[in-house]
């Protein structure tokens, strides 16, 4: 085997939880055999992350998964290895997993659990990573957002814009005090205060607003959509944002219940 920084994805001992050691786990799913490659800017964006690089290949029901693995496994693995090298060269620590599946949703969801991922990347390319829009909906689960943002960017000089679209019955002052709280938390976690901007807005359609604001940023961080819907990354609003914004979107995952 060639020297790669990837680790075997099998049974990962729980001794060093990557999220505790400061590096947030981010899942990067790529349909390797359909020509999807690691988009530009991803290594820079995730330089401080623990990246779980998932190569997946969706096979139709009429084909046995083993059959596809036998034929395409090696090709897919070597492509995945290249991507892992690029990520590692930028500084992230990388684990690779390759899965042949009949249903990508099941696979992504399983890996989020197994690796306790804070966020999933919707892999789009960006030319540089200088400013990031962080869209926050409310206090519920906001700690995971701050952990991710601080984990990824506290050591860099990336500018972070915290954004909140007002919920019904909220005043501008409410929104600002919420975001200032988040900002304080980020500062406590090592972000420089002058790199954090705060924007509160009364927007009708949050998705449009986020995608619109995103255009003046290089990447977007936002939450998962609806806890009642099974938790696929490609769930609606984050997908819509990703489609319109065209840049990388980090979808912060809800806390997963213990299995």
């Amino acid at each position: 085997m060639t020297e790669t920084p990837t680790e075997d994805g099998g049974a990962q001992p729980e001794t060093e939880d990557p999220t505790e050691s400061g590096r947030p786990s981010v899942l990067v799913p790529l349909a390797v055999l359909e020509g999807e490659s690691l988009p530009n800017g991803t290594p820079e964006l995730l330089a401080s992350a623990h990246v779980v690089l998932l190569g997946y290949h969706v096979i139709p029901e009429q084909t046995a998964a083993e059959q596809a693995r036998e034929q395409f496994g090696e090709t897919a693995m070597s492509k995945l290895g290249e991507f892992a090298d690029r990520l590692a060269a930028a500084g992230s620590d990388v684990e690779t997993r390759l899965v042949f599946t009949h249903d990508e949703g099941t696979t992504v969801d399983r890996l989020i659990y197994e690796h306790d991922c804070l966020a999933v990347l919707v892999p789009n390319s960006t030319e540089r990573v200088e400013s990031v829009l962080v869209a926050l909906r409310g206090t519920v689960g906001v700690g995971r957002n701050t952990r991710l943002v601080a984990g990824l960017f506290s050591e860099s000089d990336v500018e972070v814009t915290l954004y909140h679209a007002l919920n019904e019955g909220e005043s501008i002052a409410d929104g600002e005090s919420f975001l200032n709280g988040v900002r304080a938390d980020l500062v406590e976690r090592g972000m420089a205060p002058d790199r954090i901007e705060v924007v509160v807005e009364d927007a009708d359609a949050a998705v449009d607003a986020i995608a619109g604001h995103g255009e003046s940023h290089d990447a977007v961080v936002m939450g998962e959509t609806d806890p009642s819907v099974t938790t696929f990354v490609f769930g609606m609003p984050s997908e819509q944002v990703a489609e319109r914004f065209l840049g990388p979107v980090l979808v912060v995952q809800r806390e997963r219940p213990e299995e």
Binding site: D8, R69, G73, M77, V99, T106, R110
Partner: peptide, 12 residues
């Protein structure tokens, strides 16, 4: 399903 170096199989 142990990864043989050529990927895992998702049971669906």
């Amino acid at each position: 399903d142990a990864d043989t170096g050529e990927g895992e199989l998702e049971r669906t």
